[in-house]
Design a protein around this nucleic acid. Structure first.
Length: 565
RNA sequence: CGGCGUGUAGCGCAGUCUGGUAGCGCACUUGCUUCGGGAGUAAGGGGUCGGAGGUUCAAAUCCUCUCACGCCGACCA
Protein backbone atom coordinates (compact mmCIF):
# COMPACT_ATOMS: atom_id res chain seq x y z
CA UNK A 1 0.00 0.00 0.00
CA UNK A 2 1.20 3.47 -0.85
CA UNK A 3 0.20 6.36 1.38
CA UNK A 4 -0.18 8.70 -1.57
CA UNK A 5 -3.32 6.84 -2.58
CA UNK A 6 -4.47 5.93 0.89
CA UNK A 7 -6.98 7.78 3.02
CA UNK A 8 -5.13 9.12 6.04
CA UNK A 9 -6.86 11.88 7.95
CA UNK A 10 -5.41 12.64 11.34
CA UNK A 11 -6.36 15.50 13.60
CA UNK A 12 -4.06 17.61 15.71
CA UNK A 13 -6.90 18.77 17.89
CA UNK A 14 -9.25 16.53 19.80
CA UNK A 15 -12.92 16.86 18.96
CA UNK A 16 -14.78 17.89 22.10
CA UNK A 17 -17.09 14.88 22.09
CA UNK A 18 -14.31 12.46 22.98
CA UNK A 19 -14.11 11.75 26.70
CA UNK A 20 -11.80 8.79 27.06
CA UNK A 21 -8.46 7.87 25.56
CA UNK A 22 -9.54 5.23 23.09
CA UNK A 23 -12.31 7.40 21.68
CA UNK A 24 -10.01 10.39 21.39
CA UNK A 25 -7.27 8.42 19.70
CA UNK A 26 -9.59 6.61 17.32
CA UNK A 27 -10.96 9.93 16.10
CA UNK A 28 -7.60 11.67 15.99
CA UNK A 29 -5.99 8.78 14.12
CA UNK A 30 -8.88 8.80 11.67
CA UNK A 31 -10.04 5.24 12.36
CA UNK A 32 -13.67 6.16 12.85
CA UNK A 33 -16.01 9.06 12.21
CA UNK A 34 -19.20 9.70 14.09
CA UNK A 35 -22.29 9.65 11.92
CA UNK A 36 -24.87 10.07 14.69
CA UNK A 37 -24.95 9.58 18.44
CA UNK A 38 -23.58 6.10 19.10
CA UNK A 39 -23.28 5.37 15.38
CA UNK A 40 -19.90 5.34 13.68
CA UNK A 41 -18.43 4.98 10.22
CA UNK A 42 -15.23 2.98 9.98
CA UNK A 43 -12.53 4.52 7.81
CA UNK A 44 -10.08 2.34 5.85
CA UNK A 45 -7.48 2.32 8.62
CA UNK A 46 -10.03 1.42 11.28
CA UNK A 47 -11.64 -1.23 9.15
CA UNK A 48 -8.27 -2.95 8.72
CA UNK A 49 -8.12 -3.35 12.49
CA UNK A 50 -11.67 -4.68 12.65
CA UNK A 51 -10.87 -7.23 9.94
CA UNK A 52 -7.88 -8.45 11.91
CA UNK A 53 -9.96 -8.83 15.06
CA UNK A 54 -12.56 -10.75 13.07
CA UNK A 55 -9.89 -12.95 11.54
CA UNK A 56 -8.60 -14.07 14.92
CA UNK A 57 -12.11 -14.75 16.14
CA UNK A 58 -12.98 -16.73 13.01
CA UNK A 59 -9.84 -18.82 13.22
CA UNK A 60 -10.46 -19.77 16.83
CA UNK A 61 -14.17 -20.41 16.38
CA UNK A 62 -13.57 -22.53 13.30
CA UNK A 63 -10.86 -24.49 15.09
CA UNK A 64 -13.34 -25.19 17.87
CA UNK A 65 -15.73 -26.68 15.32
CA UNK A 66 -18.24 -23.84 15.20
CA UNK A 67 -19.84 -23.08 11.83
CA UNK A 68 -20.29 -19.56 10.52
CA UNK A 69 -23.73 -18.40 9.42
CA UNK A 70 -25.21 -14.99 8.70
CA UNK A 71 -28.53 -14.21 10.30
CA UNK A 72 -30.73 -11.25 9.39
CA UNK A 73 -30.16 -7.87 11.01
CA UNK A 74 -33.88 -7.09 10.73
CA UNK A 75 -36.09 -9.55 12.57
CA UNK A 76 -39.85 -10.10 12.55
CA UNK A 77 -41.75 -9.24 15.73
CA UNK A 78 -43.50 -12.64 15.74
CA UNK A 79 -40.34 -14.39 16.90
CA UNK A 80 -39.86 -11.90 19.71
CA UNK A 81 -43.48 -12.22 20.76
CA UNK A 82 -43.08 -15.99 20.83
CA UNK A 83 -40.13 -15.81 23.20
CA UNK A 84 -41.94 -13.16 25.23
CA UNK A 85 -39.21 -10.58 24.80
CA UNK A 86 -41.07 -8.16 22.49
CA UNK A 87 -42.56 -6.41 25.51
CA UNK A 88 -40.10 -7.51 28.15
CA UNK A 89 -36.72 -6.58 26.67
CA UNK A 90 -35.33 -3.62 28.63
CA UNK A 91 -37.70 -0.86 27.67
CA UNK A 92 -36.44 1.26 24.87
CA UNK A 93 -33.36 -0.80 24.10
CA UNK A 94 -35.16 -2.60 21.28
CA UNK A 95 -35.37 -0.55 18.10
CA UNK A 96 -38.75 -1.36 16.62
CA UNK A 97 -39.59 -0.81 12.97
CA UNK A 98 -42.58 -1.20 10.70
CA UNK A 99 -42.52 -2.21 7.08
CA UNK A 100 -44.83 -0.78 4.39
CA UNK A 101 -47.59 -3.14 5.45
CA UNK A 102 -47.11 -1.86 8.99
CA UNK A 103 -45.92 -5.24 10.14
CA UNK A 104 -43.65 -5.07 13.19
CA UNK A 105 -39.93 -5.72 13.01
CA UNK A 106 -36.92 -4.88 15.10
CA UNK A 107 -33.29 -4.27 14.31
CA UNK A 108 -31.69 -7.22 16.07
CA UNK A 109 -29.94 -6.41 19.35
CA UNK A 110 -29.14 -10.15 19.63
CA UNK A 111 -30.20 -13.29 17.80
CA UNK A 112 -31.53 -15.96 20.18
CA UNK A 113 -34.97 -15.87 18.60
CA UNK A 114 -33.77 -16.12 15.02
CA UNK A 115 -31.33 -18.93 15.72
CA UNK A 116 -33.87 -20.86 17.78
CA UNK A 117 -36.32 -20.56 14.93
CA UNK A 118 -33.64 -21.88 12.60
CA UNK A 119 -32.75 -24.68 14.99
CA UNK A 120 -36.30 -25.94 15.35
CA UNK A 121 -36.64 -26.44 11.62
CA UNK A 122 -33.09 -27.68 10.96
CA UNK A 123 -32.46 -29.88 13.99
CA UNK A 124 -34.63 -32.95 14.32
CA UNK A 125 -32.45 -35.63 15.83
CA UNK A 126 -29.97 -35.89 18.68
CA UNK A 127 -27.60 -37.30 16.10
CA UNK A 128 -27.15 -33.78 14.64
CA UNK A 129 -25.95 -32.58 18.04
CA UNK A 130 -24.04 -30.91 19.48
CA UNK A 131 -23.79 -28.11 16.97
CA UNK A 132 -22.49 -24.55 17.29
CA UNK A 133 -23.39 -21.75 14.88
CA UNK A 134 -21.77 -18.34 14.95
CA UNK A 135 -21.98 -15.11 13.02
CA UNK A 136 -20.32 -11.70 12.91
CA UNK A 137 -23.14 -9.23 12.55
CA UNK A 138 -24.11 -5.61 13.07
CA UNK A 139 -26.45 -5.17 16.00
CA UNK A 140 -28.39 -2.23 17.32
CA UNK A 141 -29.25 -1.50 20.92
CA UNK A 142 -30.91 1.84 21.51
CA UNK A 143 -28.87 2.73 24.60
CA UNK A 144 -30.27 5.58 26.69
CA UNK A 145 -26.85 7.06 26.85
CA UNK A 146 -24.30 6.03 24.27
CA UNK A 147 -20.79 7.10 25.25
CA UNK A 148 -17.09 6.33 25.16
CA UNK A 149 -17.09 6.03 21.37
CA UNK A 150 -17.19 2.43 20.21
CA UNK A 151 -17.15 1.12 23.79
CA UNK A 152 -20.81 1.92 24.31
CA UNK A 153 -22.20 2.56 20.87
CA UNK A 154 -25.74 1.91 19.74
CA UNK A 155 -24.74 0.27 16.50
CA UNK A 156 -21.91 -2.19 16.92
CA UNK A 157 -20.48 -5.39 15.51
CA UNK A 158 -20.63 -8.52 17.57
CA UNK A 159 -19.62 -12.10 17.14
CA UNK A 160 -22.39 -14.24 18.57
CA UNK A 161 -22.50 -18.00 18.71
CA UNK A 162 -25.31 -20.36 19.69
CA UNK A 163 -24.83 -24.01 20.53
CA UNK A 164 -27.47 -26.74 20.73
CA UNK A 165 -27.37 -29.94 22.73
CA UNK A 166 -29.49 -32.89 23.70
CA UNK A 167 -28.45 -32.74 27.33
CA UNK A 168 -26.89 -30.51 29.95
CA UNK A 169 -23.62 -32.40 30.07
CA UNK A 170 -23.01 -31.68 26.41
CA UNK A 171 -23.92 -28.01 26.93
CA UNK A 172 -21.49 -27.82 29.83
CA UNK A 173 -18.77 -29.30 27.63
CA UNK A 174 -19.22 -26.72 24.86
CA UNK A 175 -19.51 -23.94 27.44
CA UNK A 176 -16.11 -24.94 28.83
CA UNK A 177 -14.73 -25.18 25.30
CA UNK A 178 -15.95 -21.65 24.52
CA UNK A 179 -14.46 -20.48 27.80
CA UNK A 180 -11.04 -21.61 26.59
CA UNK A 181 -11.64 -20.32 23.05
CA UNK A 182 -12.41 -16.86 24.45
CA UNK A 183 -9.30 -16.95 26.58
CA UNK A 184 -7.24 -17.90 23.56
CA UNK A 185 -8.70 -15.10 21.43
CA UNK A 186 -7.99 -12.47 24.07
CA UNK A 187 -4.50 -13.84 24.63
CA UNK A 188 -3.76 -13.63 20.91
CA UNK A 189 -4.78 -9.97 21.08
CA UNK A 190 -2.29 -9.58 23.95
CA UNK A 191 -4.93 -8.27 26.32
CA UNK A 192 -4.87 -8.23 30.10
CA UNK A 193 -8.25 -9.82 30.79
CA UNK A 194 -10.15 -11.77 33.43
CA UNK A 195 -13.02 -14.23 33.19
CA UNK A 196 -15.62 -13.10 35.70
CA UNK A 197 -18.70 -14.75 37.21
CA UNK A 198 -21.67 -12.76 36.06
CA UNK A 199 -25.36 -12.14 36.02
CA UNK A 200 -27.16 -13.43 32.98
CA UNK A 201 -29.44 -10.38 32.82
CA UNK A 202 -32.34 -10.21 30.44
CA UNK A 203 -31.00 -12.96 28.21
CA UNK A 204 -31.81 -15.42 30.92
CA UNK A 205 -30.43 -18.81 31.87
CA UNK A 206 -28.07 -20.23 34.43
CA UNK A 207 -24.30 -20.16 34.38
CA UNK A 208 -22.60 -17.21 32.78
CA UNK A 209 -19.10 -15.81 32.56
CA UNK A 210 -18.08 -12.36 31.41
CA UNK A 211 -14.67 -11.65 29.91
CA UNK A 212 -13.35 -8.30 31.02
CA UNK A 213 -10.43 -6.33 29.70
CA UNK A 214 -8.90 -4.59 32.70
CA UNK A 215 -8.99 -0.81 32.25
CA UNK A 216 -9.44 2.23 34.48
CA UNK A 217 -12.09 3.54 32.12
CA UNK A 218 -14.16 0.35 32.31
CA UNK A 219 -17.83 0.73 33.16
CA UNK A 220 -18.05 -2.46 35.19
CA UNK A 221 -16.56 -3.09 38.57
CA UNK A 222 -15.10 -6.51 39.23
CA UNK A 223 -14.50 -8.03 42.64
CA UNK A 224 -11.28 -10.07 42.82
CA UNK A 225 -9.85 -12.20 45.53
CA UNK A 226 -6.37 -11.27 46.70
CA UNK A 227 -5.50 -14.94 47.12
CA UNK A 228 -7.39 -17.01 44.56
CA UNK A 229 -8.73 -16.92 41.00
CA UNK A 230 -12.12 -15.85 42.25
CA UNK A 231 -13.53 -12.93 40.23
CA UNK A 232 -17.12 -11.80 39.96
CA UNK A 233 -19.05 -8.78 38.81
CA UNK A 234 -19.72 -6.65 41.92
CA UNK A 235 -23.38 -6.75 41.06
CA UNK A 236 -23.35 -10.45 41.75
CA UNK A 237 -20.40 -11.20 44.03
CA UNK A 238 -21.71 -12.96 47.09
CA UNK A 239 -21.41 -11.08 50.37
CA UNK A 240 -20.68 -13.57 53.13
CA UNK A 241 -22.69 -13.32 56.36
CA UNK A 242 -20.61 -11.96 59.24
CA UNK A 243 -20.86 -13.70 62.65
CA UNK A 244 -23.98 -12.74 64.61
CA UNK A 245 -23.52 -10.30 67.44
CA UNK A 246 -24.16 -11.65 70.91
CA UNK A 247 -24.54 -8.56 73.08
CA UNK A 248 -27.62 -8.41 75.33
CA UNK A 249 -30.73 -6.85 73.88
CA UNK A 250 -31.47 -3.41 75.28
CA UNK A 251 -34.76 -1.57 75.67
CA UNK A 252 -36.05 0.13 72.55
CA UNK A 253 -35.93 3.91 72.72
CA UNK A 254 -37.47 6.49 70.39
CA UNK A 255 -35.16 9.45 69.86
CA UNK A 256 -35.81 12.77 68.09
CA UNK A 257 -33.64 13.17 64.99
CA UNK A 258 -34.85 16.30 63.23
CA UNK A 259 -33.33 16.83 59.76
CA UNK A 260 -31.34 13.59 60.05
CA UNK A 261 -32.60 11.94 56.92
CA UNK A 262 -29.42 10.18 55.93
CA UNK A 263 -27.40 7.44 57.56
CA UNK A 264 -24.45 9.79 57.83
CA UNK A 265 -26.42 12.42 59.74
CA UNK A 266 -28.12 9.90 61.99
CA UNK A 267 -24.81 8.29 62.81
CA UNK A 268 -23.20 11.65 63.62
CA UNK A 269 -26.15 12.93 65.62
CA UNK A 270 -26.54 9.79 67.76
CA UNK A 271 -22.78 9.19 67.95
CA UNK A 272 -22.90 5.63 66.75
CA UNK A 273 -20.99 3.96 63.92
CA UNK A 274 -22.81 3.53 60.60
CA UNK A 275 -22.39 -0.22 61.07
CA UNK A 276 -24.87 0.03 63.95
CA UNK A 277 -27.58 1.59 61.78
CA UNK A 278 -29.77 0.06 59.17
CA UNK A 279 -31.49 1.50 56.12
CA UNK A 280 -34.87 0.35 54.99
CA UNK A 281 -35.49 0.61 51.26
CA UNK A 282 -39.00 0.31 49.91
CA UNK A 283 -39.31 -1.11 46.44
CA UNK A 284 -42.17 -2.23 44.24
CA UNK A 285 -43.16 -5.83 44.81
CA UNK A 286 -44.46 -8.44 42.43
CA UNK A 287 -47.07 -9.94 44.79
CA UNK A 288 -47.50 -7.04 47.21
CA UNK A 289 -47.54 -3.31 46.39
CA UNK A 290 -44.33 -2.74 48.28
CA UNK A 291 -41.49 -4.86 49.64
CA UNK A 292 -39.01 -3.66 52.25
CA UNK A 293 -35.31 -4.38 51.79
CA UNK A 294 -33.10 -3.82 54.82
CA UNK A 295 -29.37 -3.20 54.69
CA UNK A 296 -26.76 -2.16 57.17
CA UNK A 297 -26.26 1.62 57.05
CA UNK A 298 -22.80 1.42 55.52
CA UNK A 299 -23.84 -1.00 52.79
CA UNK A 300 -25.20 -0.49 49.27
CA UNK A 301 -28.04 -2.34 47.64
CA UNK A 302 -27.18 -4.59 44.70
CA UNK A 303 -30.03 -4.07 42.29
CA UNK A 304 -29.18 -7.31 40.51
CA UNK A 305 -29.48 -9.31 43.73
CA UNK A 306 -32.70 -7.52 44.63
CA UNK A 307 -34.25 -8.32 41.28
CA UNK A 308 -33.46 -11.97 41.80
CA UNK A 309 -35.99 -12.09 44.67
CA UNK A 310 -39.23 -13.37 43.22
CA UNK A 311 -41.32 -11.07 45.40
CA UNK A 312 -39.52 -7.98 44.05
CA UNK A 313 -40.77 -6.47 40.81
CA UNK A 314 -38.33 -6.63 37.92
CA UNK A 315 -36.94 -4.25 36.78
CA UNK A 316 -36.24 -2.85 40.22
CA UNK A 317 -38.12 0.36 41.02
CA UNK A 318 -38.09 2.35 44.22
CA UNK A 319 -41.44 3.24 45.82
CA UNK A 320 -42.58 6.84 45.23
CA UNK A 321 -42.43 9.31 48.13
CA UNK A 322 -46.22 9.73 47.87
CA UNK A 323 -46.78 5.99 48.14
CA UNK A 324 -44.56 5.86 51.21
CA UNK A 325 -46.43 8.78 52.78
CA UNK A 326 -49.73 6.99 52.19
CA UNK A 327 -48.51 3.65 53.53
CA UNK A 328 -46.45 4.83 56.52
CA UNK A 329 -47.20 8.50 57.01
CA UNK A 330 -43.54 9.47 56.94
CA UNK A 331 -40.92 10.73 54.56
CA UNK A 332 -38.03 8.91 53.02
CA UNK A 333 -35.31 9.16 55.64
CA UNK A 334 -37.40 8.02 58.57
CA UNK A 335 -38.41 4.57 57.40
CA UNK A 336 -37.65 1.73 59.79
CA UNK A 337 -38.23 -2.02 59.97
CA UNK A 338 -40.72 -2.14 62.85
CA UNK A 339 -44.39 -2.92 62.25
CA UNK A 340 -44.21 -2.62 58.51
CA UNK A 341 -47.34 -3.63 56.61
CA UNK A 342 -45.29 -5.41 53.93
CA UNK A 343 -42.79 -8.26 53.74
CA UNK A 344 -39.32 -7.44 55.09
CA UNK A 345 -36.24 -8.95 53.46
CA UNK A 346 -33.07 -8.48 55.48
CA UNK A 347 -29.54 -8.58 54.18
CA UNK A 348 -27.25 -11.09 55.90
CA UNK A 349 -25.06 -8.40 57.41
CA UNK A 350 -28.00 -6.35 58.63
CA UNK A 351 -29.50 -9.48 60.19
CA UNK A 352 -26.33 -10.15 62.19
CA UNK A 353 -26.36 -6.96 64.27
CA UNK A 354 -28.10 -6.21 67.55
CA UNK A 355 -29.27 -3.02 69.26
CA UNK A 356 -29.22 -1.04 66.07
CA UNK A 357 -30.77 2.24 64.98
CA UNK A 358 -33.46 2.54 62.34
CA UNK A 359 -36.18 4.95 61.31
CA UNK A 360 -39.31 5.23 63.47
CA UNK A 361 -41.71 5.46 60.53
CA UNK A 362 -42.51 8.89 61.88
CA UNK A 363 -40.97 12.13 60.64
CA UNK A 364 -38.20 13.44 62.89
CA UNK A 365 -37.62 10.24 64.89
CA UNK A 366 -35.42 7.19 64.86
CA UNK A 367 -35.41 4.21 67.22
CA UNK A 368 -32.41 2.93 69.17
CA UNK A 369 -31.80 -0.66 70.19
CA UNK A 370 -33.96 -2.40 67.66
CA UNK A 371 -33.52 -6.17 67.58
CA UNK A 372 -34.76 -8.60 64.99
CA UNK A 373 -37.56 -11.01 65.88
CA UNK A 374 -38.29 -9.17 69.14
CA UNK A 375 -39.09 -5.86 67.41
CA UNK A 376 -39.45 -6.65 63.76
CA UNK A 377 -40.60 -9.60 61.73
CA UNK A 378 -38.37 -11.01 59.02
CA UNK A 379 -39.70 -12.57 55.85
CA UNK A 380 -36.28 -13.93 54.92
CA UNK A 381 -32.58 -13.28 55.39
CA UNK A 382 -30.96 -12.89 51.99
CA UNK A 383 -27.85 -11.62 50.27
CA UNK A 384 -28.80 -8.15 49.07
CA UNK A 385 -25.80 -5.89 49.29
CA UNK A 386 -22.90 -5.10 47.03
CA UNK A 387 -19.59 -6.53 48.08
CA UNK A 388 -17.00 -4.04 49.41
CA UNK A 389 -13.22 -3.78 49.36
CA UNK A 390 -11.84 -5.78 52.27
CA UNK A 391 -14.79 -8.18 52.54
CA UNK A 392 -13.84 -11.84 52.76
CA UNK A 393 -13.78 -13.57 49.37
CA UNK A 394 -16.79 -15.87 48.93
CA UNK A 395 -14.53 -18.84 48.22
CA UNK A 396 -12.98 -18.42 51.65
CA UNK A 397 -9.57 -17.47 50.31
CA UNK A 398 -8.30 -13.95 50.75
CA UNK A 399 -10.01 -10.60 50.73
CA UNK A 400 -11.88 -8.68 48.07
CA UNK A 401 -10.42 -5.89 46.05
CA UNK A 402 -12.03 -4.09 43.13
CA UNK A 403 -10.90 -3.26 39.62
CA UNK A 404 -12.66 -1.80 36.63
CA UNK A 405 -13.13 -3.72 33.43
CA UNK A 406 -14.55 -3.45 29.94
CA UNK A 407 -16.85 -6.35 29.15
CA UNK A 408 -15.74 -7.71 25.77
CA UNK A 409 -17.24 -11.17 25.95
CA UNK A 410 -20.05 -12.98 27.71
CA UNK A 411 -20.88 -16.66 27.58
CA UNK A 412 -24.11 -18.21 28.90
CA UNK A 413 -25.72 -21.54 29.47
CA UNK A 414 -29.25 -20.71 28.44
CA UNK A 415 -30.64 -24.20 29.00
CA UNK A 416 -34.13 -24.59 27.56
CA UNK A 417 -35.35 -21.01 28.10
CA UNK A 418 -35.79 -20.30 24.40
CA UNK A 419 -36.25 -23.82 23.14
CA UNK A 420 -39.23 -24.27 25.50
CA UNK A 421 -40.99 -21.02 24.70
CA UNK A 422 -40.32 -21.47 20.99
CA UNK A 423 -40.82 -25.21 20.92
CA UNK A 424 -37.44 -26.20 19.56
CA UNK A 425 -37.36 -29.95 20.19
CA UNK A 426 -35.46 -32.96 18.96
CA UNK A 427 -35.89 -36.68 19.35
CA UNK A 428 -33.41 -38.07 21.86
CA UNK A 429 -31.72 -41.47 21.69
CA UNK A 430 -34.77 -43.20 23.11
CA UNK A 431 -37.08 -41.60 20.58
CA UNK A 432 -38.59 -39.09 23.01
CA UNK A 433 -39.24 -35.44 22.19
CA UNK A 434 -36.99 -33.22 24.30
CA UNK A 435 -36.34 -29.48 24.39
CA UNK A 436 -32.95 -28.46 23.05
CA UNK A 437 -30.34 -27.33 25.53
CA UNK A 438 -28.82 -24.10 24.37
CA UNK A 439 -25.73 -22.01 25.00
CA UNK A 440 -24.86 -18.56 23.71
CA UNK A 441 -21.52 -16.81 23.40
CA UNK A 442 -21.08 -13.15 22.53
CA UNK A 443 -17.99 -11.11 21.84
CA UNK A 444 -17.92 -7.39 20.96
CA UNK A 445 -15.82 -6.90 17.84
CA UNK A 446 -15.99 -3.11 17.62
CA UNK A 447 -15.76 -2.82 21.38
CA UNK A 448 -12.57 -4.89 21.34
CA UNK A 449 -10.92 -2.33 19.06
CA UNK A 450 -11.58 0.34 21.69
CA UNK A 451 -10.60 -1.90 24.60
CA UNK A 452 -7.26 -2.75 22.98
CA UNK A 453 -6.47 0.96 22.71
CA UNK A 454 -7.43 1.57 26.33
CA UNK A 455 -4.69 -0.88 27.26
CA UNK A 456 -2.14 0.09 24.62
CA UNK A 457 -1.31 3.75 24.15
CA UNK A 458 1.03 6.52 25.20
CA UNK A 459 1.18 10.33 24.85
CA UNK A 460 1.90 10.04 21.13
CA UNK A 461 -0.96 7.74 20.28
CA UNK A 462 -2.01 4.15 19.84
CA UNK A 463 0.40 1.22 20.24
CA UNK A 464 -1.20 -1.69 18.40
CA UNK A 465 -0.29 -5.26 19.18
CA UNK A 466 1.36 -6.59 16.01
CA UNK A 467 -1.54 -8.88 15.17
CA UNK A 468 -4.09 -6.05 15.14
CA UNK A 469 -2.18 -3.13 13.68
CA UNK A 470 -3.72 -1.65 10.51
CA UNK A 471 -0.24 -1.99 8.98
CA UNK A 472 2.61 -3.97 10.46
CA UNK A 473 5.27 -1.64 9.12
CA UNK A 474 5.64 1.79 7.57
CA UNK A 475 8.53 2.94 5.39
CA UNK A 476 9.31 6.64 5.51
CA UNK A 477 11.79 7.94 2.95
CA UNK A 478 13.47 11.26 3.70
CA UNK A 479 13.71 13.54 0.69
CA UNK A 480 13.07 10.81 -1.86
CA UNK A 481 12.17 13.49 -4.40
CA UNK A 482 15.71 14.79 -4.27
CA UNK A 483 17.78 11.71 -3.66
CA UNK A 484 17.65 8.96 -6.23
CA UNK A 485 19.49 6.68 -3.80
CA UNK A 486 16.84 7.12 -1.14
CA UNK A 487 14.13 6.59 -3.70
CA UNK A 488 15.67 3.39 -5.05
CA UNK A 489 16.42 1.91 -1.65
CA UNK A 490 12.90 2.67 -0.51
CA UNK A 491 11.30 0.96 -3.46
CA UNK A 492 13.61 -2.01 -3.06
CA UNK A 493 12.76 -2.45 0.62
CA UNK A 494 9.07 -1.98 -0.04
CA UNK A 495 9.08 -4.67 -2.73
CA UNK A 496 11.00 -7.09 -0.52
CA UNK A 497 8.68 -6.68 2.43
CA UNK A 498 5.63 -7.08 0.24
CA UNK A 499 7.07 -10.27 -1.23
CA UNK A 500 7.47 -11.60 2.28
CA UNK A 501 3.76 -11.04 2.83
CA UNK A 502 4.30 -8.17 5.23
CA UNK A 503 1.43 -5.74 5.65
CA UNK A 504 3.53 -2.70 4.81
CA UNK A 505 2.68 0.85 3.81
CA UNK A 506 5.13 3.11 1.99
CA UNK A 507 4.69 6.74 2.92
CA UNK A 508 5.52 8.17 -0.50
CA UNK A 509 3.65 11.44 0.05
CA UNK A 510 6.11 14.08 -1.18
CA UNK A 511 4.03 17.03 -0.02
CA UNK A 512 4.17 15.95 3.61
CA UNK A 513 7.16 16.83 5.74
CA UNK A 514 8.99 14.07 7.64
CA UNK A 515 8.04 15.46 11.05
CA UNK A 516 4.37 15.25 10.18
CA UNK A 517 4.76 11.68 8.98
CA UNK A 518 6.51 10.63 12.19
CA UNK A 519 3.77 12.09 14.31
CA UNK A 520 1.00 10.62 12.20
CA UNK A 521 2.35 7.09 12.23
CA UNK A 522 2.97 7.22 15.94
CA UNK A 523 -0.58 8.39 16.45
CA UNK A 524 -1.91 5.61 14.21
CA UNK A 525 0.27 3.15 16.09
CA UNK A 526 2.06 1.12 13.43
CA UNK A 527 4.51 -1.20 15.25
CA UNK A 528 7.56 -1.07 12.95
CA UNK A 529 8.92 2.10 11.40
CA UNK A 530 11.67 2.13 8.80
CA UNK A 531 13.23 5.47 7.92
CA UNK A 532 15.42 5.74 4.85
CA UNK A 533 17.60 8.81 4.53
CA UNK A 534 20.92 9.88 3.06
CA UNK A 535 22.58 9.94 6.47
CA UNK A 536 22.23 6.30 7.31
CA UNK A 537 22.39 5.13 3.70
CA UNK A 538 25.98 6.37 3.55
CA UNK A 539 26.76 3.73 6.17
CA UNK A 540 24.61 1.29 4.20
CA UNK A 541 22.14 1.26 7.07
CA UNK A 542 18.53 2.16 7.59
CA UNK A 543 16.83 3.38 10.70
CA UNK A 544 14.46 1.08 12.54
CA UNK A 545 12.13 2.08 15.38
CA UNK A 546 9.72 -0.11 17.26
CA UNK A 547 6.64 1.85 18.29
CA UNK A 548 6.56 0.47 21.79
CA UNK A 549 10.29 0.41 22.55
CA UNK A 550 10.78 3.83 21.03
CA UNK A 551 14.55 4.02 20.45
CA UNK A 552 15.88 4.26 16.90
CA UNK A 553 18.41 1.67 15.70
CA UNK A 554 20.72 2.09 12.74
CA UNK A 555 20.87 -1.37 11.26
CA UNK A 556 21.24 -3.16 7.96
CA UNK A 557 18.25 -3.70 5.75
CA UNK A 558 18.45 -7.47 6.28
CA UNK A 559 18.47 -7.08 10.04
CA UNK A 560 15.45 -4.78 9.85
CA UNK A 561 13.54 -7.25 7.75
CA UNK A 562 14.29 -10.02 10.19
CA UNK A 563 13.04 -7.87 13.07
CA UNK A 564 9.74 -7.36 11.30
CA UNK A 565 9.14 -10.94 10.28
C1' C B 1 -36.28 9.06 31.90
C1' G B 2 -34.72 13.62 35.17
C1' G B 3 -31.19 17.89 35.83
C1' C B 4 -27.67 21.05 33.53
C1' G B 5 -25.15 22.70 29.23
C1' U B 6 -23.89 23.42 23.97
C1' G B 7 -25.34 24.18 18.65
C1' U B 8 -21.48 29.95 14.31
C1' A B 9 -16.74 26.89 7.79
C1' G B 10 -14.31 19.87 7.82
C1' C B 11 -12.14 20.35 13.28
C1' G B 12 -11.31 23.66 17.71
C1' C B 13 -13.44 28.23 19.16
C1' A B 14 -14.63 33.99 19.66
C1' G B 15 -18.77 37.17 18.68
C1' U B 16 -24.76 36.73 21.82
C1' C B 17 -24.99 40.13 27.89
C1' U B 18 -25.57 45.83 25.26
C1' G B 19 -29.49 44.05 17.87
C1' G B 20 -26.40 47.41 12.90
C1' U B 21 -20.70 44.71 7.19
C1' A B 22 -19.89 37.02 10.30
C1' G B 23 -14.49 36.51 12.58
C1' C B 24 -9.79 33.74 14.57
C1' G B 25 -6.55 29.18 14.72
C1' C B 26 -5.98 24.40 12.39
C1' A B 27 -7.33 21.91 7.87
C1' C B 28 -8.16 22.87 2.35
C1' U B 29 -6.53 25.35 -2.91
C1' U B 30 -2.46 27.97 -5.76
C1' G B 31 2.59 30.09 -6.06
C1' C B 32 7.52 30.65 -3.94
C1' U B 33 11.03 29.21 -0.12
C1' U B 34 11.72 25.04 2.97
C1' C B 35 12.20 19.57 3.95
C1' G B 36 14.89 14.30 10.24
C1' G B 37 9.70 15.57 14.67
C1' G B 38 2.53 18.42 13.30
C1' A B 39 7.36 24.67 8.48
C1' G B 40 7.53 30.03 6.55
C1' U B 41 5.36 33.36 3.18
C1' A B 42 1.77 35.54 -0.20
C1' A B 43 -2.85 35.06 -2.44
C1' G B 44 -7.47 32.38 -2.22
C1' G B 45 -12.02 29.04 -1.58
C1' G B 46 -15.49 27.61 1.92
C1' G B 47 -21.26 29.79 6.30
C1' U B 48 -29.33 28.84 4.95
C1' C B 49 -24.95 31.31 12.50
C1' G B 50 -29.20 23.68 14.14
C1' G B 51 -34.61 24.46 12.39
C1' A B 52 -39.50 27.07 12.50
C1' G B 53 -42.25 31.12 14.00
C1' G B 54 -42.35 36.02 16.28
C1' U B 55 -40.60 41.26 17.88
C1' U B 56 -37.91 45.15 15.04
C1' C B 57 -36.34 49.79 9.98
C1' A B 58 -32.71 45.87 11.07
C1' A B 59 -31.76 39.40 14.48
C1' A B 60 -26.02 34.83 15.12
C1' U B 61 -27.54 38.38 19.08
C1' C B 62 -34.17 39.51 21.99
C1' C B 63 -38.92 36.16 22.66
C1' U B 64 -41.63 31.33 21.80
C1' C B 65 -41.57 26.50 20.07
C1' U B 66 -38.77 22.56 18.16
C1' C B 67 -34.62 19.36 16.77
C1' A B 68 -29.76 17.60 17.55
C1' C B 69 -25.55 16.84 20.48
C1' G B 70 -22.92 16.56 25.19
C1' C B 71 -22.15 16.09 30.56
C1' C B 72 -24.17 14.50 35.25
C1' G B 73 -27.82 11.51 37.70
C1' A B 74 -31.26 7.53 38.13
C1' C B 75 -29.21 2.52 45.90
C1' C B 76 -28.81 9.53 50.07
C1' A B 77 -34.61 6.06 53.18
Amino acid sequence: MRAKRYSISTLKETPSEAEITSHRLMIRAGLIKKTASGIYSWMPLGLRVLKKIEKIIREEMDTAGAQEVLLPAIQPAELWKESGRWDQYDEGLLLKLKDRHSRDFCFGPTHEEVITDLARTELKSHRQLPINFYQIQTKFRDETRPRFGVLRAREFIMKDAYSFHSDKASLEETYQLMHSVYSKILQRMELDYRPVEADSGSIGGNASTEFHVIAESGEDVIAFSTESDYAANVELAEAIAPPSETENMLEMEKVPTPDAKTIEKVSTLLEIPEEKTIKTLLVKGSETEIVALVLRGDHTLSSVKAEKLSSVASPLRMADPEEIMTALGCQIGYIGPCNLPFPVYVDRSAAAIRNFVGGANEDGYHIRNINWHRDSKIEAIVDLREIKVGDPSPDGKGKIRLKRGIEVGHIFQLGDKYSKSMKANVLNDSGKTTALQMGCYGMGVTRLAGAVIEQNHDESGIIWPHVLAPFEAVIIPINAQKSQKVFDKTEELYAELKDLGCDVILDDRDDVRPGVKFNEWELIGVPHRLVIGEKSLKKNKIEYTHRKKGEALEISKEKAISLIN
